[in-house]
Design a protein around this nucleic acid. Sequence first.
DNA 1: ATCGCTAAGTTGATTCGTTGCACTTTTCTT
DNA 2: AAGAAAAGTGCAACGAATCAACTTAGCGAT
Lengths: 197, 197
Amino acid sequence: MTVPPVSRRDRKKAATRQAIADAALQLFLERGYDQVGIRDIADAADVSTATVFKHFSGKEALVFDQDQDRESALIAAVRERPSGQSILDALRLHILDTWPSIEEHPQAAEFTHLVDSTPVLRAYAERMWTRYTDSLSAAIADEVGVDHDDLACVALARFVLDIPALARGRQDRRAAVEAIFDILTHGWEPPGKRPAP
Amino acid sequence: MTVPPVSRRDRKKAATRQAIADAALQLFLERGYDQVGIRDIADAADVSTATVFKHFSGKEALVFDQDQDRESALIAAVRERPSGQSILDALRLHILDTWPSIEEHPQAAEFTHLVDSTPVLRAYAERMWTRYTDSLSAAIADEVGVDHDDLACVALARFVLDIPALARGRQDRRAAVEAIFDILTHGWEPPGKRPAP
DNA sequence: ATCGCTAAGTTGATTCGTTGCACTTTTCTT
DNA sequence: AAGAAAAGTGCAACGAATCAACTTAGCGAT
């Protein structure tokens, strides 16, 4: 939850931003991403197209309005973990706690479908996560006490941020997360043969 | 190296494609990616803009003309590895053999700078690699004898394909590759503190 | 209270990547 | 040599995004 804006100006600004995001999401869900133009969104929100781009960096960003909170939460999970808990455990538990329940929420079903069925949105979502590599790896490096650009920390951050893409579409997301963390903790081994179905 | 085309038609097709790619790269290096339009490239290659898009899926693809060979080589390294060699070793040795020498080649310096200094190209390059996840993970799964969508194999493929992005800009690329494979082999551990400079 | 300053929003034009369509030219097949 | 298939052309058009000049509304300090 973000701090509520103070001045009237800020409130109005936030209001228009919200109006644009709401209008966009509704239209996207109704007609599909590619069947909605920026002008449609601007008209629905009763603003000009230029205003849309003042608030959002591009069309894709209209869809992912609040997913930045998940990044802050992830970093907080590392920085404020209980003493004695390893970084890997903190990440694992936090992810198990929050991500699957978010994505399994019934309201999110059509949203997930929208993203999955639109290639440009899939691409944007993936890049959105890996773009957070810098801040997450900085947090990890701080906790360990090494330079921010320490390779092991950057790599771990990157691998952890790959998890949403890897776990997407799995029947049992929790098991998927556990399996990936097992690789990160103990190293990769050839999986045993599965019984043929 | 790809097999030379057979018929005259194929040769001409390859020639125009090459002319477009050459013109594009030269202009990009001269003026910078954003300062060159598709129409400039088409004029320089003496074709119409429509022809450019017949050969390349988009503007970014003009820059990465031959990087697909590296993917095939990577998969071959897994499939045709010496018997008794582990998959991880095969990947590690192949990458150490080929990638750093390619990127340290002097001719590639300005190309690398072009990509690094153009955000949209950086993004495309990253996505280009992770897009190969499917074929690499399929190769790994085949060698291990499990389903193509086995999570551990997909995860390994993804992590290995993250390596270019992680090793980019490191002073010692070989050491970086080794360090990342160490994580993938034995699991992640907090790195020891470095001596303060 | 009000006077400017700043930031939000508008309007309209403009650039640029990309696609579609109807058409011509070249090459392959038989 | 005829006709099918594919490469390329020319042009118009669409949508996303940006820019410049302008209007409006809220803010802060006198």
